[in-house]
Design a protein around this nucleic acid. Sequence first.
DNA 1: CTAAAACTACGGTAAACACCTTAGTCTTTT
DNA 2: AAAAGACTAAGGTGTTTACCGTAGTTTTAG
Lengths: 216, 216
Amino acid sequence: MPIKILIADDHPLIAEGIKNTFDNQTDYQVVAVVNNGKEALEFIEQHIVDIALLDINMPIIDGIECAKKITSEFKDVKVAMLSMFQESSIIKSLIDIGVKGYMLKTIPSDELLLAIKNIYNGKEYFNADVTKALLSGDSASFHQYQKKSPLLEELTSREKEIIKSISQGNTNTQIGEKLFISPRTVDTHRTNIMRKLDVHNVASLIRFAFQNGLTS
Amino acid sequence: MPIKILIADDHPLIAEGIKNTFDNQTDYQVVAVVNNGKEALEFIEQHIVDIALLDINMPIIDGIECAKKITSEFKDVKVAMLSMFQESSIIKSLIDIGVKGYMLKTIPSDELLLAIKNIYNGKEYFNADVTKALLSGDSASFHQYQKKSPLLEELTSREKEIIKSISQGNTNTQIGEKLFISPRTVDTHRTNIMRKLDVHNVASLIRFAFQNGLTS
DNA sequence: CTAAAACTACGGTAAACACCTTAGTCTTTT
DNA sequence: AAAAGACTAAGGTGTTTACCGTAGTTTTAG
């Protein structure tokens, strides 16, 4: 009985590459390749899936949102995340959500196969570097993991709108003009966002935006 | 006689996916799959390649650097770039370098096949949205295309070091401490970087860094 | 051995950001 | 109806960034 895998990635080429890796094996069976979180959820509602392999950045419903829904509503499905980036600040919230794995797209095929098998068998797989960052040093990250994740204290839709606009290079004044609100209001939103994310300058803010798919 | 294709991408899964797309066709032949620009150049020196399909973000020698070398030293090889991002500011310099195509990794397989065939036959393929941005409106971008690209007036290694550190969330003072130079010097570098890239705030700077693989 | 480029540094000014507080309006939830 | 949350706005203050110019030292290239 092969492991039933769902792949969700909005990049057809990448999704195909992943699928190809599994197709050459007998123990794995890719039962679906979808392009976004919405399609993933729709498929899981109707079919049996052992492992959902989700890209973090996807349109319509992103990987994190999707993972949240899957782990709460379909407890038989184990979720693993795929990402372009090495970002330990995401991991904390992923662990809280109940995700069983996190791997970069730089992972070699054979390691991916092993990781999926381990996750299927009840283990977890997290990118080595990330694990290291969480467990040793890296100052803030481990500390944040112990208290409640700032990411879970989620951003409101208005705040997401603001952070998106900031990361497009707009100043508070420009954003205010675009959204027909006072630049002071934008500043207030900005402050709240930074408090929630625990970052202290624009650079880190944009960094967060990019690594969480909050860019256009 | 199939079209001989070299694929350069540091993500094995993605490279495999692309290769797979071509392997199912008779008119195309993937002659090499390499992980970085250096390996791509080494292969091209020794073998016949019609099309080099390069990822923009690669370690050791990145896609842009690699494209530059190929178009100047191996004029028989046509270069097409693959990118995760939709960034018209890169395109301008790519065109200047002599790249024949630019496509996002969201491209469907059949369109990729067609694009490669067209490029092989002397045409060009540029992502539709990018072309639109270049040709109509988008204020600055077309203007910049006419004068020399700011990206070509390249960043020095020290400047790359600085921009990397900025995008990690460090302030000028922090960077100064880390590199044992005055924060004023960091500011000077910063000013020079922004002039070269024609951006005017941290947000746009980080955006550039992320879209050009200048992050850690 | 020059000339060019890179790296270093500072003075000065205006704008933007970071952070704090308070507070009114509106909508949603209990 | 009251509480909670979201969105709006502003006062105030210190820091950082953005952009000018100038200029010395070191490294690299012709």
